[in-house]
Amino acid sequence: MIEFDLDQSDVRELNAALHNSDIAKNQSKWKVRNTKGRHAIAVGIDETLEMLIDGHVGYYCAGMNKHANITVNGHCGPGVAENMMSGTVRIKGNASQYAGATAHGGLLVIEGDASSRCGISMKGVDIVVKGNVGHMSAFMAQKGCLVVCGDAGDALGDSLYEARLYVRGKVASLGADCIEKPMKLEHKAELKELLKQANLSDINVDEFHRYGSARTLYNFNIDNVGAY
């Protein structure tokens, strides 16, 4: 176990150690204390390791994560796990704006609520939120799944591409080109697996609705030609 106390050393030292493959390859367990809302904690990890971040974190925690399993025992500021490639990021508290933005892969679990723009432009990550998500979530989401066990705010899935959205509670409103679609067996199976990975197997998949793209914004509409 390697432990960093951010009252004693700064975030640059922590991230430099994580990026030094001689250190990171030989240390499978990491712990960070006294985070106090600092920014860019545990960013750019490219190793299979376990990381416990004990406390609230600021902007961009666990950004660009590859391979690592990161747990944040607290709340997160904006942009947690943005551009994640693989691995797992688990937030025990709430997440601020644009959690999992543009992330390509891996699993992001938020055990509290996520605020606005959760999963904006997601490109393959799976995001499971135990609570609610704010407005404009999954805006322009391209690939992957956003699972919301609570309610979703306004304009869910606006200008959506091929990401799949599963919401258990109420949706305040759907964004442009986002529609409800039937929950087929394959979707229930996919959702069940995601809930299992998020340690939320006790939640019944039959309570969810599925939303996806109507695909009407994909191509140029010839009826609009006169406008150019």
Binding site: K36, G37, R38, G55, H56, G58, Y59, H75, G77
Partner: peptide, 13 residues
């Protein structure tokens, strides 16, 4: 604006 400003208060954690 950010949590780190609140972290200085007694009992913030």
């Amino acid at each position: 604006s950010e949590y780190r400003a609140l972290a200085v208060l007694p009992g913030a954690k």
